[in-house]
Design a protein around this nucleic acid. Structure first.
Lengths: 351, 351
DNA sequence: GCTTGGCACTCTACTTCAGAGAGTGCCAAC
DNA sequence: GTTGGCACTCTCTGAAGTAGAGTGCCAAGC
């Protein structure tokens, strides 16, 4: 990283060679030598010529050799170029899509869909699958119920969509009687039914308050309680579900116990992974982190292929696959893509 | 395992020697030779005499040698005898108990208490902590609410204890109107308030039904719905929380990636572990599974120290620690014991 | 000027060998 | 019953040698 000469664009030949090299390395897991590339490379060049090109590629930082007399392996930068410019994604077979559709059938509850998606990803790729829980402030409010716990503590129950239940303990600034709570709940249920939590949080509440200027005490109470209920207390308890982590234990490049430990600790901590996944929320389509690009040491040698999933143009979350940098991107990418689409579809509320 | 001579009881000396050997092996992780035992063994015997006794212990199946010229290591059977008959449990330091109490403070919700307990176990022992979720049919019913989803599907919301909410979609045999549901819910809330789900399931329902012989249609409806609601559909979605699994990756005896994979797959499958933990539910006090005793191949070389936890004499669940067979039982056992007590206490409903 | 065969060089991986060290089992002596 | 002695076995370590793979460079060829 001290100096980086080769910012001249790669020649056609160099690109083709890099592509072949990455493919071969992904397939065999062995450093690829000049000899091996003479055969199937498509180009009719001698090993010596290939060596020249490979020397250039090495200088430009796309490949490196583990030691003098081994072949070359791609660097993170090499993989990046490969993924961005050289990769032609396999179309998934129709069979896959049907198969997936069955296993990601709509009509089940959110949690089990997320679980299925995660398992699906890991099962199909033989890597680890991750799925963030869908953002919850998107669902349509169906019913609001309050239950007094003690003087000033109320258990609020919020029913969303089909059958999703959220509950939350809120503290009020004054005591409310059960009857009062009942009224408030009726009022809010009526008023907010069909709106999303996000909508309510994003201003509906203020609008009501401004418009009607507390025409009666019921409204005042309702708004006070609702404000507590919908307060965004920063506790956006994002979470994700991971499946098939143990698949990662079979890869030679991760087989040192220390690396595995580091990686699994990152899984357990959740924070780093979440942060990484959150970065994918903004861009849509498939996105890829390669090795150290993520900035986390535990991700050395590991890649992450992600996609957002959405329904009705609302981005709900991120899902993806974690595997060794040396993974079959051309096979994994469409799987992630399709799974994201199907999960989005299965989560569609009006289904 | 072909024949097992030594069913004669061990001599005093043999027991003492076994105890020393296990202690040493747990401390150092190295096979223990006759020479090493001459010093600190307390007995004043020559290496040769010790060799004789060790030969007896080996024949009786308590110890074995990895190869001809290594020392001896305990077998599962040896550990078992050690744990049952030779172990004197260290009293935990008072500091620990206070420290724990703070981190397992009552008044938080069940899930976070269970999480804390699991983390506590793994943090204190540097092993993996497991805690089953408390049995849920113990909590006192506080409120029952129904919400119509479609013609014959009802979302039932059950509020227990302080603020624990369960919900469940039930299918009815005929359509119910909202008003009707409201009546049913009022009736059931009144009738069942304070009772535990277990109580209701265990006969209260039948009693009501038999007693009153459907005096009116409301009762008939209520009982029909309640039957659905409290049906024990075998889906006792037992679950457990595990923490600190990665601690297990540092132990030499588990450092083969295949063994680790096997073990972590067992964690992920959950079924086997749950089955194992369920076996501990019956006996109370600390219980220990050593290595192959559990019957699962993944548990070769691994021990499980468990205890039930309970409040008000009601067994709520099981918690424990998973670690290599070569663990410091005398240190781990009191930790498990204390944690179980504190968790039980923290979960006490009337707190 | 690009391409190619040839060649010396380097580095890893594997095998073999020998010696050190640890521990045992057995035996004869106490 | 206990002990010192001794031959034996097995693992571990390091050294040394060999085979194999791949490279870099150079001079010759198209």
């Amino acid at each position: 990283m001290v100096h980086r000469h080769g910012d001249e664009p790669l020649t056609e030949r160099a690109q083709h060679l890099l592509k072949m090299l990455v493919h071969r390395y992904i397939r065999d897991g062995q450093p690829v030598g000049s000899r091996a590339m003479t055969r199937d490379g498509g180009l009719d060049l001698s090993a010596a010529s290939i060596r020249n090109v490979m020397a250039d590629l090495e200088e430009a930082g796309y490949i490196q050799s583990p030691h003098t007399s081994a072949g070359r392996i791609p660097t993170d930068r090499g993989y990046r170029f490969f993924v961005d410019s050289l990769l032609s994604v396999r179309r998934e077979s129709g069979l896959d899509a049907d198969n997936l559709r069955i296993r990601l059938d709509a009509g089940r509850d959110t949690d089990s869909l997320v679980d299925s998606a995660s398992n699906l990803l890991s099962g199909l790729t033989h890597l680890a699958g991750v799925v963030t829980l869908p953002r919850r402030d998107y669902g349509a409010i169906r019913h609001i119920e309050f239950l007094p716990l003690s003087e000033r503590r109320i258990l609020a129950i919020l029913v969303l969509n089909d059958s999703e239940v959220q509950n939350r303990v809120i503290e009020t600034d004054r005591p409310y009687s059960p009857a009062e709570l009942q009224q408030v709940s009726n009022y809010l249920s009526l008023e907010f039914a069909g709106k999303s939590v996000g909508d309510v949080r994003r201003g509906l509440l203020e609008a009501m308050q401004a418009d009607q200027q507390h025409v009666n005490s019921l409204m005042t109470s309702a708004i006070a309680v609702a404000r507590e209920l919908f307060a965004d207390d920063g506790d956006t308890d994002d979470d994700f579900v991971i499946a098939g982590e143990t698949n990662l234990m079979t890869f030679a490049e991760l087989s040192s116990v220390e690396k595995l430990k580091e990686l699994f600790e990152a899984f357990g901590r959740k924070r780093d992974i979440l942060h990484l996944l959150d970065r994918c929320l903004s861009a849509d389509g498939v996105q890829i982190f390669i090795g150290q690009e993520s900035g986390y040491r535990a991700f050395d040698g590991v890649s992450l292929v992600t996609s957002t999933y959405q329904s009705d143009d609302q981005v709900l979350g991120v899902l993806g696959v974690i595997g060794p940098t040396r993974m079959e991107y051309d096979r994994v990418i469409p799987i992630v893509d399709v799974t994201a689409r199907l999960l989005g579809h299965a989560l569609k509320p009006d289904h």
